[in-house]
Amino acid sequence: MPDDRELSNTHAGAQLLSDRVPGSAAFDELVVSRQSESLASDDILVKKPLGFLFWFALSWVGLVVILALIANLLPLPNPNYQNYSAINAPPSIHHLLGTDDLGRDLLSRLIFGARVSLVVGFVSVVVGLLIGGTLGLISGYKGGRLDSALNAGSFVLLAFPAIVAVIAIVAFWGHSLFKITVILTVAVIPLLYRVVRASSLSFANRDFVVAARTMGATSGRIVFREILPNVIPAAVSFGLITAAGVIVVEGSLAFLGLSVALPTPSWGNLIANGATNGNLQINPYIMLWPVLAMFLLLLSINLIGDRVRQRFDVREGLL
């Protein structure tokens, strides 16, 4: 029974427990950097190689992005063109991935559908980081009344189940690609704000910041020259994982028919079409391709985010 021995007794993370405040601070935890003092602390300096999986993930995301960008230039049939002579066709030379129940080319719909996921996922996170991240950076460093107000506000916003709020707003406002993107951007701002604020706060009183302050650096300079570079790893790794989350929410909305209006393809509504209307029995390809593409995309984004986190030693916490 080799059971006892691997419970090692080094002191790494000894202080993690003591400064942990549950619940409210759940988001703050995840960016507090780990300070290992284990016997084998030297090993941590040896960087793990990124590995085959990382490069595979990056290639897949790259491929999807490029195909979505140049979709119009590709020799693809119109994604909405209904070829009634080729309904539910299996994969062939003419239709590499086959056709759906209305004779539309599945490859074309898949590639054009990627645009929705990518636009919604990345635009909302980039804009969210610009707005929420900037607020978080300043509020974490400055503290004071602004910080208290923003912090309380973000708590209230995060107290809502985002999906319900999004569905309700979509119900009244409508669901074009632009509106969906705006709604999801607003939804991720408080989340990204909290992450960046927590990270900024953890650096605000570090020695190098104090040193810069004593040398008379302006607040603006300190925030953007000293703190920002240190916050970026956490922001990027959490931003990627948030992007995956946003893509899931958009996919869910599309699945429910609440995202971009049909017949515009989106991976969510492609999956929904494949899974309903009896298509699952007749032509499983309709569902299979978008399911595979979505699975690989989410896996890749999560993996890249996780590697960034490992590389820069951001604590796992709620990521």
Partner: peptide
Amino acid sequence: ARSIMGLLPAQD
């Protein structure tokens, strides 16, 4: 002290 007790981890 821990070696005498046998309390060290087995790994490494």
